[in-house]
Amino acid sequence: MEIKKKRWKNRLLSLVSILMLLGGVYVLYNVFSPMMTQPNPDNNSTTKLLAETPEESIKENRLYIPKIDINLPYAKGGAGVMERGAWWRSPNSGNPKDGGNFVLSAHRFIMGLTPQQTQRKSPFYNINRLEIGDNIIIDYHKQRYEYKITEVFSVRPEDVKIEKRTEEPRLTLYSCTLGGADDGREVIIAEPVKKSEPKQKSAS
């Protein structure tokens, strides 16, 4: 009888150990799932959505970053806006139409119950993959604006200069570093790409 009890306890301990190990593996996979995505910048959900949504059919304000497969709405308001997309910070600092500093921020990392939730809640997780020269697209008031990244840098959490209005039109994206909100901010600066003027037909 005593031997059977020991066997039962050993089996139970083994089962608990296996479950804990599997749980740990799942948590690690969940945490690192946004990092594991390697989207093709020429063929992903963002590039497809852009192709399917020409400028004349724009219905909402939206941010697109093809290189890291980001496409999400943005809006004014408080931090709660970031549960649904990006937060338009300091609207008085500027916008794509009138110039100035158009500032958007979004969550870097929020863990969900599943890897899919984690990826959805952490849209700016891979912001560190962006480089000078990469393109960013903004839909604003039914108009489409293209930007090209010109600067990539980090600042301290208390540095609010990145939200100040600027003389020249620009787009500023930022999010926390992976060290957390108290560690600092990763910042992306992009300048508008001038639309080419339509060629006029020469008189024959």
Score class of each variant (00 low, 15 high):
S14T: 14
G179T: 11
G94C: 07
E146F: 02
K67H: 03
A106W: 03
G100S: 06
R165A: 09
E191N: 11
P157T: 06
S90D: 05
W8K: 14
P123T: 09
F32R: 10
M20L: 15
N30D: 09
G100V: 03
R120G: 03
A190C: 12
G112P: 06
G184W: 03
S202W: 04
G80I: 01
A203G: 01
T172W: 05
G77K: 02
L28F: 13
V103Q: 01
L19C: 14
V25L: 11
H107L: 05
E56T: 06
K199N: 11
Y125V: 06
E52N: 10
G23H: 10
I132N: 08
S45E: 03
P66Q: 06
I136P: 00
D183M: 13
T46C: 08
E191D: 11
E167K: 11
D139I: 10
I149R: 00
G80V: 04
T53H: 11
S122E: 02
L104P: 07
T177S: 02
N128Q: 05
T166W: 03
D182P: 02
P41G: 05
G180R: 02
T177P: 00
I3H: 15
R156D: 10
I110N: 05
S105R: 00
G23N: 10
A79Q: 15
Y174Q: 05
K5S: 15
A86Q: 02
R11E: 14
R11D: 15
T47H: 04
T150K: 07
P192L: 08
F102Y: 13
R144A: 01
G85E: 04
R7Q: 14
M111F: 08
S175H: 02
Y29L: 14
N101Q: 04
I189E: 07
S204W: 11
K6C: 14
R11P: 12
Y26F: 15
A86N: 11
F153M: 05
M111A: 06
Q38C: 13
G180W: 00
R120N: 06
G133T: 12
Y125G: 07
G112M: 00
R7F: 15
E146R: 03
P73D: 11
R144P: 07
N128V: 08
Y125D: 06
V160L: 11
I189L: 12
E186W: 13
N95C: 05
Y64K: 04
K201Y: 13
L63F: 02
S57D: 07
I65S: 00
L171A: 03
A79W: 13
G100W: 00
F102T: 03
K97Y: 06
G133N: 14
L72T: 07
S14Q: 13
A190N: 08
G80Y: 00
I68G: 05
L130D: 01
N43E: 09
L12N: 14
